[in-house]
Design a protein around this nucleic acid. Sequence first.
DNA 1: TCGTTCCGGGG
DNA 2: GTGTACGGAACGA
Length: 807
Amino acid sequence: MQAHHDEYVFGWDPTPGIVSVWANRQGRVLYWRRVRDEEGNERVLCVRDRFRPWILATSLDDVSHLGSDLVEEGRGGTSRTVWYRELQGEEGSYRFLLSAFDGRTLEQAILEGASLRLQRAVKTVQELPDAYYRVGPVEQYLIGSGRVYFRGLHYDDLHRLQFDLETTALDPHRGRIFLIAVRDNRGLAEVLEAPHPEDEKRLLQTFCQLVRERDPDILENHNLFGFDLPFLEHRALIHDISLDIGRTGFDGAPMLLERYEETLAIGPEARKRTRYSVGGRELIDTLDAVRRHDFVVRALPSYGLKDVARYFGLASQERVYIEGSEIFARYQREPERVRRYALDDVSEVDGLSKRLQGAPFALAGMAPRRYERLASAGPAMGILEPMLVRAYLRRETALPGSGQRVLSGDLHEGGAVRLFASGVARNVVKADVASLYPSLMRTFQIGPSCDRLGVLLSILDRLTDLRLEQKAAAREAVPDSIEANHYEATQAAMKILINSAYGYMGAGSMALFADSQAASEVTRRGRAILAQVLQALEKRGMVLIEADTDGVYFAVPDHWNAEQEQRLVAEIGAELPAGIRLEYEGRYQAMLSHEVKNYALLTYSGELIVRGVALRSSRVEPFGERFLLQALRCTLLGDISGVRNAYLETVDALRMKRLPAIDVATRVRLSKTPEEYLAQRKKHLEPAYEALLQAGRRKWFPGERVRFYRARNRQYVWIPEETAETATHNDWEQPPGNANELRDRRDYDTEHYIQVLKNSYAKRLQKAFTPEDYHALFSNEQPGLFDGIFERPLECIQPILKREETI
DNA sequence: TCGTTCCGGGG
DNA sequence: GTGTACGGAACGA
């Protein structure tokens, strides 16, 4: 059985070093292997192969019209033959594997038969989803052969090339490419240029030639699919040249860039996006990787390359920054600086790739799909399902038909988020159930009822064990070594799959192995486990604060130490069903619970952790944020006069103009062009644009970030960025004031900012106090000694914890 | 002012 | 050729 498990996870064919696969509907395949010869020189071999294109059918009805051209598999045939193989499975399941020498012959036969059967013209197989199950040519080949990408390779073995276009505008109709920075992880760093419009064609040709010469396995950039490739494609069209950046195809010529539309379900609606593909190389957009990363972590300030590179600590000290709209103008005056800027871009892309592509790399060693697809595929439908299909065909077993899926179950509610108390609590502990849903599936053997072979649970079991091994191996390896990164990436890939197993069952009618009853059984048991934990805590006198699907914050008695807390968690964990592990996550000296998922924690080492938007300001004026962090810390420490002082000091600093303008300024991103803004200005004034106009600027581009503050009489003052990187004087009529002088001005609207302090920063501490205490703490009156603003002295104010809900 | 829609990125 | 979403800002009544 173990052998099956490993085949389910990794396929079975041992071919090492596959770095790209290209297959078409005629059953022709090229794949490229990266190998080393005896002397250790690396080479890329191109291998030609064939496969017989296949499709799965629930019956032979549509192909019976073929007569003697319909033949059982194992017997010979001609180019017109359609073969069938019967898999184990009941009526209604996809139990006939149809194949032909050419996929088009196969489809033609099916469409003809279906048209006869339905008495209407059937144009595509997609019109018959209940009757046929089909995957793309590369997937057919990988599923049939048991091959996967990258066997025996480490991430650094891949030859990756990054390139970045610099253009005169964002829109290829209005601008052109004047520079392309190219680097790879084999030592290349080069800048190709076209100072004049007539040079652009040559530039494109040189670029294609360079790519072919370097012959990388992977092409990478940030927003590759959204910007660089469409731009390249459009400019190539204008110059009437082809973008031959692929590896050599069947006819001996380099393969061209191809485009296709992809439907993505982002949010509730489906949206289209254009994808590109090229033979022999995998196209990787680091923007996809960044989105996927942040989907879990939710910590990135923006998805822009520069911001993300800084976030990951990839930006170098000497990194050149230039505002997007200034790049071309800057290039004309200071070309060397723009060259450095563009090379910084590609090297940050390389850094991002190293940091984020490990998991998709590891997934490509498991699932039967192209690496480039796995890099952006959804984990359930895009990765797990192809693995399930591969396993079923390997076992000669039919896939469940639409009738076998279970879609009826009541829509599972998932795990509720609950707020038991708001305000300030001390001695707080976080505990949660490790991998709750996958653990429940394993413990209670809850899988899709239509998964007759139990493949999903097998894969889940095997991945869970393998992941523990990988994690152990990662811990043993030299930190940050190639091996450590490899193990770490593999365990991360496995985690992605493990976590998607539950979601897959509830994915609805599109999932082949959907079982929404099983999915709701998982959430039902999950809720029961959580309820058991909550009751156990309450029974022992703990104060519940907040709970979500698989975790809980609660307060323990005052004098408790970490050992006692751990013992409590272990004790309650021991009462849970075997296989369900309650983990002690951490302890905090205090917590401000604001709303569900919005709280601040103070660790015993004094670190302040703020979670959720409600406790962060969206405007981030520096003075307000400083105040909030200080006030939160004081509140959590019980230092009430510290809170009052922070407030009074901030008010006073504003009144006395001790704060420079930069401290009250906010920074926003422009979205309107000058024309658009001027057209609507009569109706509605917007501070950011007013600030620019006030400074005499008449030209700007959407996307620019503008820092400004509010001065008296509703005047808005623009503070240009300190680097002066943006300063090209043709953009405004009168030269701007000195940025340093502006940053230090004191003519801001004091009363306005005091209101902001009160209404948008102090507000966030409201739950920590009784209404009377809150108003007393944040009143602007400096109390005289005896005028009784405080009903009781400040020292008597204590933070409160208010019960919101009971279990 | 409130709901509703759109966007996120790239030069 | 498939299957994330949520917070903030802009927009429209």
